[in-house]
């Protein structure tokens, strides 16, 4: 295996272009684990950690740009991720366990596209967009459409993710992430990421995304709409939950059966909504 440490995005792109079996190395947490297990053997690794711009965090009027190489720990500690954007911070601060949060990155999480992970779902809930750099320049892609299948993104060969834009969202919005796992350090059995705007007791806006319940983060417009305009009564939540469950295609695995995950979705939705509302009041 060959190895390189480019110092600019352009150098990185050139390396990716020059090697058929090149792969980016971000935090390495998942990629190195897969290499250890003999499940992947890239011919060339392009480590992104010496490219300064990939670790930048910049604020603009309508949101925050997070560099692809920001670690979960860094994202969790970012105070400017407030309001709707807090869903990303909340997920980054809870997922996995501390040493993984110290190593793994935002970009790595997006590009790995592992359906069991939480950050992709939180990013979809935040309506985040990824900046993709490739031979033809840079483009912005909603994270939701970047994630096309389990462990598959719409990135083309030779492309990489440079940064992710988290829109500020509506004033007064709250973002919240809830995970449920067998033990605290485990991947979630089901996770829920949501952004909520309340007007008094009435829901003005809702965006609910379920993790670990299908090949990609599960987002159902109709479920969001079912909540908007209601007072989030039990029946509203149950109905929105049903819409989500209908669209879910969860896995049967060691963390729980598909059936259990279907049971959890509406149950955890109610809890996530009420926790988010508590946040809204403080």
């Amino acid at each position: 295996m060959r190895y390189a440490e480019p110092e600019t995005v352009e150098e990185g792109l050139a390396l990716l272009a020059a090697h058929d079996d090149a792969r980016c190395l971000a935090g390495g947490a998942s990629l190195v684990a897969m290499m250890n297990a003999g499940r992947v053997a890239p011919g060339m690794l392009v480590s992104l950690h010496r490219i300064p711009e990939l670790s930048d965090i910049t604020e603009t009027g309508d949101g925050l740009w997070l560099g692809a190489m920001c670690t979960h720990r860094g994202v969790a500690a970012e105070p400017r991720l407030r309001g709707a954007m807090a869903v990303v911070r909340s997920a980054a601060g809870q997922l996995a366990h501390p040493a993984i949060r110290n190593m793994a990155t935002l970009g790595g999480s997006v590009c790995l596209a592992d359906p069991h992970t939480e950050l992709p779902a939180a990013l979809v809930a935040a309506s985040a967009r990824a900046e993709v750099a490739g031979p033809g320049g840079r483009r912005l892609v909603p994270v939701e459409s970047l994630l096309v299948d389990g462990f598959r993104t719409s990135l083309q060969r030779g492309e990489l993710v440079t940064r992710v834009f988290i829109p500020r969202g509506t004033d007064g919005a709250v973002g919240h992430h809830l995970r449920f796992s067998r033990v605290s350090s485990d991947y979630p059995t089901v996770s829920l990421s949501l952004v909520l705007v309340m007007d008094g007791d009435t829901c003005r806006q809702a965006r609910v995304v379920v993790g670990a319940s299908g090949p990609v983060p599960l987002h159902v417009d109709a479920a969001d709409q079912r909540l908007v305009g209601t007072r989030l009564e039990e029946a509203d939540v149950a109905e929105a939950g049903r819409l989500l469950v209908r669209a879910a295609t969860p896995l049967d695995d060691v963390r729980g059966s598909a059936e259990y995950r279907r049971m959890l979705i509406p149950r955890l939705l109610g809890r996530a909504l009420s926790q988010a509302r508590e946040h809204a009041h403080v």
């Binding site: 390495g28 040493a99 993984i100």
Partner: peptide
Amino acid sequence: EGNCGACTVLVDGVPVLSCLTL
């Protein structure tokens, strides 16, 4: 595979898993 912590080292003072670090 990053699940037991026995290989923890500090890199610039921060705990990381040396089994997942090249």
